[in-house]
Amino acid sequence: MADDVTMRVWRGDADGGDFAEFTLPAQEGEVVLDVIHRIQATEAGDLACRWNCKAGKCGSCSAEINGRPRLMCMTRMDQLPEGPVTVAPMRTFPIIRDLVTDVSFNFEVAKSVPAFAPPPRPEEGYRMAQIDIERGQEFRKCIECFMCQDVCHVIRDHEDNKPQYAGPRFFIRYAELEMHPLDTNDRRELLRQQGGLGMCNITKCCTEVCPEHIKITDNAIIPMKERVVDATYDPVAWLGRKILRRKKATPQQAVTHGA
């Protein structure tokens, strides 16, 4: 292992900035976030970065490491190529300072997704089969690191698309609700118009960067595109789905599936 590591860390604010270089002794087993913390503790006490759990569970420390969106806490230094390591903030969101960006866009989109709407709870609780909730569980692994939003070219270089585009993180939220065995809302038209699902041209960048390995494109976006198309243009499929959905929600069905 090399004796020193060199980090090129973007420093600045909304008015601009540049990369600053820091050279530190290497330490065994460290992740990028460890090195950022050591820079804070020694050379640059005010170096801004967001982090919480340092275990890949909270999705706070997203950054672009050597040009690729990654969690700083899950990127081991010894697995990066030799040479200086570049750490920059996510580009799709406005800079607050250094590595910290203003991700409020995502919290605004979250407000626009109609909530889960189940039927009233039966006395003995809801019944759902494991097989019927597994897809939803995959989407609920999302830790809201917003790297899929960061890498999505629809908004990465097109600020003007943001008002009519929900982005991959919320496509899986729509998909989760749409595929929930108990949900009674129909959000497909909303997803087409307000969510801008049609603007996604399935380049799968979101899937590639997802730290939870959620198959965003294959399991959420493409099925949702199909459902939106069905709902909008195909009356026969629309009718068929109505019948299927009704069946799926009954407890008897859940029991059969689970047995």
């Binding site: 189940p118 709870r121 089969a129 494991q130 569980q137 599936h257 047995a259």
Partner: peptide, 20 residues
């Protein structure tokens, strides 16, 4: 716990469809 399920939580299930 039951209330969380009414708010959208997806807990792992027993074979008869209840919360595992």
């Amino acid at each position: 716990v039951q209330e969380l399920e009414a708010w959208g939580a997806l807990f792992d299930r027993t074979t008869d469809g209840r919360i595992l």
